[in-house]
Amino acid sequence: MTQELDCRGKRCPLPIIELSKKINEFEVGQELLFISDDPATAADLSAWARMTGNEFKIISADNFLITKSN
C-alpha cells in the first residue's frame, strides 16, 4: 500500500522539509502520497525534484504522488 504524508495546514517550508525527511527512509522506486495545501508546495516540488533527483506527479490540487528515484 502507498504510504501517505499529510501536511495539510502546514506552512512553507514545513511540507517540503517533512517530505525530504520521509523520502530519505524510502527505497528507490517506492511511492508516497504527499498531501499539502500550502500554495508554495506545487512550485517548490518542481525545484525539489530537480535538486534531489526524485519524481512527482500532480494528482489533484493538494495531492502529489512522489517516487523515490535517487
Partner: peptide
Amino acid sequence: EPSHVLKAMGLLTH
C-alpha cells in the same frame, strides 16, 4: 503566495 518571480523561473521559493 510564494514569490511569483522565483516561481516563474522554476526556482525554489522557500
